[in-house]
């Protein structure tokens, strides 16, 4: 199953990078969303997908799933929500100020560097 997961992660990263490189601001936001999903699954897969029961103590169970990646992902999920929300607002505020979402038009001009 790890093999399948690795391919899925690859596809997620690929789609994310493709979107991030595009000229439309909204696609960039979508791309970062996909990127964080890919990263979460990557962490999960790195730790291994074995384990027959969730990492919650129960009598007679010894084969728990790896709890550490799960804890890391849990924080990552919430952070990525915060980042997405922040970027979303940053994006539509930029759009509101500059009346464009074309990334190729958004560059610092020579007087401002």
């Amino acid at each position: 199953m790890e093999f399948v997961m690795a391919i899925i992660i690859g596809i997620l990263f690929m789609a994310a990078v493709y979107l991030i490189l595009s000229r439309s601001l909204l696609r960039i936001i979508l791309g970062t969303g996909l990127l964080s999903h890919g990263a979460h699954l990557l962490i999960l897969t790195m730790g291994g997908l074995g384990g027959t029961s969730p990492p919650v103590l129960a009598d007679g169970v010894t084969d728990y799933a790896d709890p550490l990646p799960q804890a890391l992902i849990l924080t990552a999920i919430v952070i990525s929500f915060g980042v997405t929300a922040f970027m979303l607002v940053l994006f539509y505020r930029t759009y509101g100020e500059h009346k464009t979402d074309n990334m190729s038009l958004m560059k610092g001009n020579d007087e401002h560097d």
Partner: peptide, 13 residues
């Protein structure tokens, strides 16, 4: 913190 900041974001947006 989770409740506070997420609701802040949603309310302001």
């Amino acid at each position: 913190v989770v409740v506070g900041s997420t609701i802040t974001m949603i309310q302001t947006i």
